[in-house]
Amino acid sequence: MPQLSSLPAYAAITLGSNSFNMLVAVTVAGKPQIIAKYKRKVRLAEGIGDDGYLSHEVMQRGLDCLALFADMLKKHRVNQHAVAVIATATLRVIANADEFKQQALPILGHPIEVISGLREAELIYQGMVATTTGVEKRLVIDIGGASTEFIVGKGRKVLFKTSVPMGGVVFNQQFFNATPFQMLDFSQAKDAVKNILSEHMQSLTNLGWDKAVGASGVVQSVVSVLQHRQVSEVITLTVLQSLRDEILAQSDLLLSDIEGLTAEQAPTFASGVAILLALFELLSIKQLHLAGGALREGVLQVLADKQRVR
């Protein structure tokens, strides 16, 4: 078997509204094997002004992260043709997306592809299937910084998919921007979730599912808190209500007294828990399990398939 370092590497870069991620992989036995992971909480959605433009300060934060990724591409000797750069909700909506893409091009040496919410949902599902065991009908929920994707599928087949404009960073600005937090903040967040999801509720309810799976930031943050406390990693309504009560008892935005919560996770934790609580109640979810992967793993799988064809 050849050494991993001798195999041609490829990289999937995803530019989310909360985090920028990069996975570097090689193909072993026909499947991507990740050799390096990079992640930065850029929180791009924080920089969207009332005029719809991304602030230059936050744009620079994103470009600085891409410069780091570019250095890592060189370190891992990734060929320029073996890179995919995918952007999601924030770059879909900002008025100066072209400016960001133009400035990013000479840094990365590769164009950014801004994908639709439905394409994002497809890739999330592919990433989940590639990394999470099970063949039952599953509801996949991916709560990002500015959008949330819902997919129902069985095996590799997608039965329903949608992307809606709500997320941890956006809800943070709307409902959780000042302490002490109040029950009213959670109630207003739930009303917003209900309103945003209303046109899809019937489809989701009619389809049903055997198991609910959560992907990406918000769910990962909750699970990491549970892991730190050495309790069950399965998210339930009781777990979320308990975390909500802890959040309400905090006096600062850093939520520094919540055991197991890191400073990096804290800024969108309250809004994330609020969205999850609302979804558990509105969709009658009993348990939510963490997926093995999501968008970036889906992009990686597409890239691996292309490398095989080349």
Rank of each mutant, 00 (worst) to 15 (best):
L63M: 14
C65P: 01
L66D: 09
A67G: 05
F69S: 03
A70G: 03
L73P: 01
K74N: 11
K75W: 05
R77Q: 15
V78N: 09
Q80W: 11
Q80M: 04
H81T: 14
V85M: 10
I86F: 06
A89K: 08
R92F: 09
A95S: 13
N96R: 10
N96V: 09
E99Y: 05
K101W: 01
Q102V: 11
Q102E: 15
Q103K: 15
A104R: 12
L105E: 11
I107P: 01
I107A: 02
L108Y: 06
L108K: 11
G109S: 07
I112S: 01
I112K: 07
E113I: 06
V114K: 04
I115W: 07
I115R: 12
S116R: 12
L118D: 04
E120D: 06
E122V: 03
Y125M: 02
T131H: 06
T131F: 04
G134Q: 05
E136V: 11
V140A: 05
V140F: 03
I141S: 06
I141C: 00
A146L: 10
S147D: 09
S147Q: 13
E149Y: 03
E149P: 04
V152C: 00
K154S: 06
R156L: 10
F160R: 02
V164F: 01
V164K: 02
P165T: 07
P165R: 13
G167K: 04
V169N: 01
F171G: 03
Q173I: 09
Q174L: 12
F176E: 09
F176A: 08
N177A: 13
N177Q: 13
A178I: 10
Q182F: 01
M183T: 15
M183S: 14
L184Q: 15
D185P: 00
S187V: 07
N195Q: 14
S198V: 05
